[in-house]
């Protein structure tokens, strides 16, 4: 069902645009019909890379969000709320400033994202707030603000003619400049992050019970948790390197998926990946078609995500504070 929805969303996204393509034409071009040169160019060089990128980014952020929520036993965390997106964004803009190649930007983003999540985790432990949902959220906000300050510093240092507009627009979240080589660069990181999460997905669910309980049930919880954090952070960094800092997807989509599948991580993860991909494709299609000027993705996802976050807070405030 979800996979079918994703295919339909991707078809629609490939069809919609200034140069409209009918589904029949898309299928013809995909199956190797080269008679319409313009359609071939639009589809292969513009539409498809962008649709694929949107699907990959959405899937990555949703998977990372679901993984963070389960391992931290905290329904309010996500790559952006934990500050990981901002940290990875800081690493990435630093890479942009230095003019590094895409792979190096990703690596720098990953390293910074990992440093961020490590800091947040350390701070939460130091404040003895692991059991409390809000302490970790607040630590994430604090560290995320620090990464934001780092990003501002990079902007200050950037060449205002060329680098600064590029960095600013990219930070708001955009897939406008995505080309096929960018996809090829992001794909390995995404797959390396996703494969262990998918393979170990039932055991990872046991981490939702807490370290001691998971260990008493025969699981090496410390090692598994570190692996999950590394994978989720790698996926986040790859998504950030591809599309900038796009908030709220990692928070919203796992909750949407949980409504369908329940909290079991082995069912939640595949659903979150499919919903995240489809959702992002739709949001990106809206971003480039609702106005003549392209709306940055971060703005759209925030408009959708902020109310969801408040709703979650209102719904869960009581059981979490116990």
């Amino acid at each position: 069902m979800l996979a079918l929805g994703l295919v339909v969303a991707m078809m629609a996204a490939a069809a919609i645009g200034p140069f409209a393509l009918s589904p029949g034409r898309i299928l013809a071009v995909l199956s190797g019909d080269r008679s319409d040169a313009q359609a071939v160019t639009v589809l292969w060089n513009i539409r498809l890379p962008r649709v694929m990128a949107a699907a990959m980014v959405g899937a990555a952020l949703a998977a990372a969000g679901a993984a963070y929520q389960t391992t931290f036993r905290n329904p309010l965390v996500s790559p952006d709320i934990l500050g990981v997106s901002a940290g990875a964004g800081f690493g990435a803009v630093l890479g942009l400033l230095l003019g590094l190649p895409v792979m190096a930007i990703q690596l720098l983003g990953f390293a910074m994202g990992l440093a961020t999540v490590g800091l947040v985790l350390g701070l939460t432990l130091a404040l003895r707030g692991t059991g409390q949902v809000l302490v970790m959220v607040l630590c994430g906000i604090a560290i995320g603000a620090l990464a934001g300050a780092g990003i501002s510093l990079v902007k200050l240092l950037a060449d205002p003619e060329q680098q600064l507009p590029a960095i600013t627009f990219w930070l708001m979240g955009s897939l406008a400049g995505v080309k096929r080589p960018d996809l090829a660069a992001a794909l390995p990181a995404l797959l390396i992050g996703a494969a262990p999460l998918l393979a170990l997905r039932w055991r990872i669910g046991l981490l939702a019970m807490g370290d001691d309980e998971a260990r008493a049930m025969g699981i090496d919880a410390t090692r598994l948790r570190l692996l999950v954090i590394a994978c989720a952070t790698l996926m986040t960094a790859a998504a950030v390197a591809l599309a900038g800092v796009i908030g709220w997807i990692g928070l919203m989509v796992p909750h949407m998926a949980r409504l369908l599948t329940g909290p079991r991580f082995d069912r939640l993860l595949p659903a979150a990946i499919l919903i995240g991909a489809g959702f992002m494709v739709l949001v990106d299609t809206a971003a480039r078609s609702i106005a003549t000027l392209e709306v940055p993705l971060g703005i759209l996802t925030a408009v959708l995500g902020a109310p969801v976050f408040v709703w979650l807070l209102a719904r869960g405030a009581r059981p979490w504070s116990e």
Binding site: T70, R73, N74, P75, G131, V133, A199, L200, R201, W202, R203, G205, L206, A208, M209, G210, E213, M217, G218, I219, R258, G262, P263, R264, D266, G316, P319, W320
Partner: peptide
């Protein structure tokens, strides 16, 4: 101690973890 709404059966199933391989469900 979990904030998620697992079903009772899901919780009891977790008891099987020690007897399952790492990639098993």
């Amino acid at each position: 101690a979990t904030p998620f709404a697992f079903s009772a059966l899901d919780i009891v199933l977790m008891g099987a973890a020690a007897g399952l391989g790492p990639f098993d469900r």
